[in-house]
Each structure stands twice: as C-alpha cells, then as structure tokens.
C-alpha cells in the first residue's frame, strides 16, 4: 500500500518525494548497468563477426553528422534539466523541444543510412550494423516519446522547483543513450 501510494505523494510535492530520490537514482543506474551489458554484447558481436574490417561504402559524413546531432542534444537536455532545477520552466521546455527535434533528426538519419546501405542483414557486417543501430535507434525513439511526455507535463506545471526528478531521470536516460553511441560510432564507422 505504501509503495502504491508513493507516486501520488511525489506527484503532489509532499515530503516523500525528496527522500525517494536516492533510491530512485540507484534504480535508474542499475537499469543503465543492465542495458549497458546488452549494448556491450552487441559491440562485441561486431568484432567477433567482422574483426576490424568495415565496408568502404560507409557514409562517413552521415555518421559524423548524426553523431554531432546526438552530442548536441545532450547539451540541450542538460540545459533543460538545469533550467527546471532553477525554476526556469520556459527555457527548460524550449531545451526539451530542441532535444526532441534533434533526437528525431538522429533517428531519421539512421533510417536514411539504412535505406542507402550497401550491405544486407545476412552479411556479417550487416548483421552487426543493423542490430547495433536498430537497438540504439529503438532507445532513441523511446527516449523521444518519453521526452514528449515530460514536455507536455512540464507545460501543465507538473515540475516545480524541488520536484524535477522526472525531468532529471529522463535527461539521464538521454545521456545514457548518448554514451552508448560514444562507443557505437567508432565501432561501426571508424574501426
């Protein structure tokens, strides 16, 4: 019963919200750790299947472009979190919207890369490429969807100063997706 009623307390800004944050933070880090293992195995499979070879047809400009967009979206996500923590809701929402748009642009970029790919899923490199970018893009798209939820709820005044864990956790998730790409980009495009 106590567990079931906790979100209601958090929603209305009662004292339990702040005391739950350390355990919430531990929980999300445990999720990151388990999810990181999945991505690590995908990266390992790329080297197992193809060694350090990669096709010359890889679109390096597109790879660097979508990497830059995702990196920049981490800054806007950070700025959104900081703005909400300091009560600057309008700026926070603007930065959330920028993050959403850049996340969507990244996903579209990956989709375009898929459409022009010279390799097929049955090739060793194709297996690695489509698995890695597909799983990562799935995380990006789900992140964008949840960012939209946070953006809409922020517009309704759900995240006043001192009750911004939903924004913080969503932004942490977005940074995690960025960290994964920090390893996937060189693994797929540069090695």
């Amino acid at each position: 019963m106590a567990v079931a009623s906790a979100p209601a307390h958090a929603e209305h800004g009662h004292g339990s919200t702040h005391s739950r944050i350390p355990i919430n933070r531990m929980g999300i880090w445990l999720f990151f750790f388990s999810d990181a293992l999945l991505f690590a195995m995908l990266a390992a499979s790329r080297f197992y299947l193809t060694g350090t070879e990669r096709p010359h047809e890889l679109n390096q400009a597109l790879g660097l472009g979508i990497t830059s967009v995702l990196l920049l979206s981490s800054l806007t996500a950070y700025r959104a979190e900081t703005a909400f923590e300091h009560g600057n809701v309008a700026h926070g929402r603007a930065m959330l919207l920028a993050t959403i748009l850049m996340g969507a642009a990244f996903a579209i970029g990956v989709g375009f890369e898929w459409s022009i790919a010279h390799w097929v899923p049955s090739d060793p490199f194709g297996t690695a490429f489509f698995s890695m970018t597909g799983m990562h893009a799935l995380h990006v798209v789900s992140g964008v969807l949840f960012l939209i939820v946070v953006y809409v709820r922020a517009g309704k005044g759900h995240f006043p100063v001192g009750n911004t864990w939903a924004v913080t956790s969503m932004v942490m998730y977005w940074h995690f997706v960025d960290v994964v790409w920090v390893f996937f980009y060189p693994t797929l495009y540069l090695v």
Binding site: T82, A83, E85, H86, G87, N88, V89, A90, H91
Partner: peptide
C-alpha cells in the same frame, strides 16, 4: 516562470 537572482546566477554557472 523565469529564474531570478541567485537562481539565475546558479543556472548560468551550470
């Protein structure tokens, strides 16, 4: 609601 005073300075630093 925009940040003001100390909040604005802290936000700018972050």
């Amino acid at each position: 609601m925009a940040a003001t005073g100390h909040n604005a300075a802290a936000e700018a630093k972050a």
